[in-house]
Design a protein around this nucleic acid. Structure first.
Length: 257
DNA sequence: ATGGTGGTTAGACCA
């Protein structure tokens, strides 16, 4: 099983990049965030014509998640499934080749102390319940997506400068740790103990990719048995270097599953 | 201290 995560920053602009990358790298499941697309406008036929299955849960302008696979995508779960709590579209879980996948687009938080910041922290706290449910139901899971937290000094180009800001704040670290502490392994860090490798480069920073001024905020986590079967995990910078890219690039993991 | 760019969508909002 080769799984990957990609914040597409508009699936309508990036569908072909996603399709080509999936086939080129023999990906079994690509977890996409920020599709920015209502379900009725999702480019389903482009994926189907390319021989790929796709499931999605989107909304107008913001957020939106999808899973793309050459295989059948089964037991699809969209958000919490609670009609009393209408969620923004940030969670999509499904089973591919018998592997349970949870795709999340964690809120950015915008600015420390803002309403969106409070929402982000609460979102991370609430997500623990979904993780527990999924693990209880399926035993082992892979959780991947745009986590919007660079959890250690190794995960951002200038940790001292960014510490205490959004995506690199102790209140985020503690909440992410509470989730990861359920026995999950950060697969990228397991294979790359060194710092300086990033998955997100801001558009607003001039030549951020060339200068490697990035953040590692796109993660793949595995429960213990899956983590034991991990063979590799890496970041592919090539899509970020192409013309008119997303501000994120793909992170992938290969498992002996 | 601020702004720089980009996507969605039609003036901001979000990242």
């Amino acid at each position: 099983m080769k799984v990957a995560t990609f914040n597409a920053n508009s699936i309508r602009l990036r569908s072909q990049v996603a399709i080509e990358w999936v086939w080129e790298h023999n990906i079994d499941a690509l977890l996409v965030q920020e599709t920015k697309c209502e379900d009725g406008l999702f480019p389903v036929s482009e994926f189907e014509e390319a021989g790929l299955q796709v499931v999605f849960d989107g909304q107008k302008s913001y957020n939106g998640v999808a899973i793309i696979s050459p295989h059948p995508i089964e037991q699809v779960r969209k958000g919490y499934g609670d009609p009393a709590w209408p969620d923004d579209k940030r969670i999509l879980a499904a089973t591919v080749q018998g592997i349970r996948l949870i795709n999340t687009y964690v809120p950015n938080g915008t600015k420390v102390g803002s309403d969106k910041w409070t929402y982000k922290l609460g979102w991370l706290e609430r997500f623990g319940a979904l993780l527990d449910q999924e693990i209880a139901t399926f035993g082992e899971v892979l959780w991947a997506g745009d986590i919007n937290v660079a959890p250690t000094p190794l995960d951002v180009f200038d940790s001292p400068k960014m510490l205490g800001g959004v995506c690199h704040h102790p209140d985020e670290f503690s909440r992410l740790q509470a989730l990861v502490g359920r026995g999950l392994t950060d697969l990228f860090r397991r294979f790359h103990p060194e710092g300086g490798k990033y998955s997100y480069f801001e558009f607003v920073v001039p030549r951020s990719v060339e200068r490697n001024l990035g953040w590692r905020i796109d993660h793949i986590y595995a429960t213990p048995s899956y983590a034991d079967k991990a063979l590799a995990c890496d970041i592919d910078l090539e899509p970020r270097k192409q013309e008119r890219p997303s501000d994120h690039t793909m992170v992938w993991a290969e498992l002996d599953l």
